[in-house]
Amino acid sequence: MKKNEFNIVDFVKIYSEDKLALFFLINLIFILILVIFGPLFTLQNPYDLSQLNILDSLLPPLSQSYENNYFFLGTDDQGRDLLSAIIYGLRISLYVGILSVVISLIIGIILGVVSAYFGGIVDSFIMRVADMVLAMPSFLIALVLLSILGRGLENVVFALVMSQWATFARVIRSSALSEKEKDYFYSAKCLCLPQYRIVFGHLLPNCLPPIIVLSTINLAFAITLEASLSFLGVGLPITEPSIGLIISNGYEYIIVGKYWMSLYPGLFLLITVISINIFSDRLRILLNPRLNI
């Protein structure tokens, strides 16, 4: 019998036996610390123009600044320390990613549970709309919405939510439906428990494993999506530079061999996304949920 319980001991065991996963878990924690406390130890606030010096522009990694500071990852065309820019950029990327996943999750839980619990016309309607959204690639939905709405943090979050809620709603409905078929659900009905108790006390807690795993997968996806959109110039505005925008700024300098402006921010993005993906993969092995759409 496969236990359906989240067990912290099993979790530690899986990680302790898997060096690769452990490495990326430490990475993830490191990135989170970097992002939360970033401004405390960056060289400068990269978007305070008074702290920038144009004489420092386009310096390769490990150069010394005009004021004898080290630019570990070099500077960009405005003399901005790249490492500081990356840390600030990651903050924005993660913020947008987490916010969009949390909102999609809330919408998904409400719609998915309502759909599964009440069935009938409500269910049919919600699921047809979700199917329609799912038939379109999420990247395209976000792209089109942003092309209509224009750049902006709220717009990006809105576009990400619109492209993700349907997956959540579908998966949660499907797992709620399969829980609904189980005898403990019938027994709760038989015992005349009130509806809110059945939904929140019995149905939702048992749908948690797929919800947790799906959220982490989608977090990685949302971060990549936002970066891609910002790279294409339809995502976040220049005033809120995420990693994608930083990479995009370095794009034109690649041809002339000044590779670092695109390479390093991309590496940071990649490590963040891999760490989240490996984390969610190990969670999936541990929780063994059925991610039916």
Binding site: A227, S228, L232, S262, G266, L269, L270
Partner: peptide, 8 residues
């Protein structure tokens, strides 16, 4: 591969 950002 799954984690690689296409544009980068």
């Amino acid at each position: 591969f799954f984690s690689l950002p296409t544009f980068w």
